[in-house]
């Protein structure tokens, strides 16, 4: 078994309205910043031990499928890196 950190990023699917991101964008504009768009996402860093990188990715993906993301509105991706 090796130690890994799986980083799960959960985003709204394209086309799904993100009112909080819209509000944040407007607040940045009020502060004088120029920007043409803003998207927000949730990032989860999961420390886990697994036989190899693929096994770690598979388990983190299952976590995303079953809890971290809601497949009706979210897409997600998983990145795995060795943990010191």
């Amino acid at each position: 078994m090796s130690a890994y950190t799986a980083t799960v990023t959960v985003r709204l699917k394209q086309g799904v309205l993100d009112p909080e991101a819209e509000t944040t964008k407007r607040a940045l504009e009020r502060l004088g910043f120029e920007l043409s768009g803003l998207r927000s996402a949730d990032r989860f860093e999961v420390d886990l031990d697994a036989a190899d990188e693929d096994a770690a990715r598979e388990r983190a993906s299952e976590m995303a499928e079953r809890l971290l993301a809601n497949p009706t509105i979210h897409d997600y991706d998983v990145e795995v890196a060795p943990r010191e």
Partner: peptide
Amino acid sequence: GCESGLTEGAFTTNASA
């Protein structure tokens, strides 16, 4: 209900935020 799969779809942040 929607999160548990009893019903379809999702209830999420109001458009007004």
